[in-house]
Design a protein around this nucleic acid. Sequence first.
DNA 1: ACTTATAATGAAAATGGTTTTCAATATCAA
DNA 2: TTGATATTGAAAACCATTTTCATTATAAGT
Lengths: 152, 152
Amino acid sequence: MRGRGRGPWWQDRLQGTGARITAPRELIIEILHETDDHVSAADVYIRAHQINPSIGLTTVYRTLDMLTQLGIVQKFDFGDGKARYELVNNPNGKKHHHHLICLRCKTIMDYSEFLDEELEFVKKTAGKLSKKYNFEITDHAISFYGLCERCR
Amino acid sequence: MRGRGRGPWWQDRLQGTGARITAPRELIIEILHETDDHVSAADVYIRAHQINPSIGLTTVYRTLDMLTQLGIVQKFDFGDGKARYELVNNPNGKKHHHHLICLRCKTIMDYSEFLDEELEFVKKTAGKLSKKYNFEITDHAISFYGLCERCR
DNA sequence: ACTTATAATGAAAATGGTTTTCAATATCAA
DNA sequence: TTGATATTGAAAACCATTTTCATTATAAGT
């Protein structure tokens, strides 16, 4: 899943905005790339720090935020006090999915079934919203809240 | 929308769980009742404090949390660092809506159009998920991400 | 009504995720 | 290679939320 040029696929995206390719950024993207779960900034920091102890938490936050703004990473807020991040269209990761969130134990489950109906709905709605609000839609998130098997 | 007993509708709900009816709780619910927007804990505190300066922020948080657990209030997390609260089925409140979030300037726009198609999709999907994961679904959220008019 | 067990409250301190500051360092265009 | 400047890391600041704890208020039982 390597890029077609001399560098990985994401380098062009960064350089296109004037951003520089740095070791911390490479590492952080690599970590996200290897992870098939939504991780917190602290999760990323711990793994990054194991590999390269010179990397700071601050840089993790900054990089995650930057990647989110570029649409490379998607940021989630599940309401448990810390944000989670996930590579969009991660070739090594899970496929597109959404979340089922338990209001009591706060467990987050992924689901990726029933996406056929979703696609139709999302496409239609995104098109209308895009036109009405002159908004360029690049991604979406759908979450269902309630009580999981153990908590109900 | 008044209760059938001697007190407002929500008093039975509280007392049913052994909770007491107190002045702070009455005030906070009244404030939520008068508001047609999702408000932060600080918003509620400011208004409550104007009316009754003895009320503390702590109590606002505690009450909001309690009401959320009782299903009287719905809590939202938009990812801007502070939670928002809204009375469920508030006669004065906004109707059901979703969000359009700009990845660059982080503006959050509400939209409540195109909910007819949504209803169909959500109903179908929720039913399937509920069955498959034995999950009791009580709510959902749909967000679209991208670039707003000014940022694109 | 009066007592009384205990739920609820408020002030202040603690917590914890995230952001800012700032001097040092690294990247990349020239 | 050089230099302008983007990036970095550590520490401090920030800020929403939670906890602690002594005080006060509610409502159940009398």
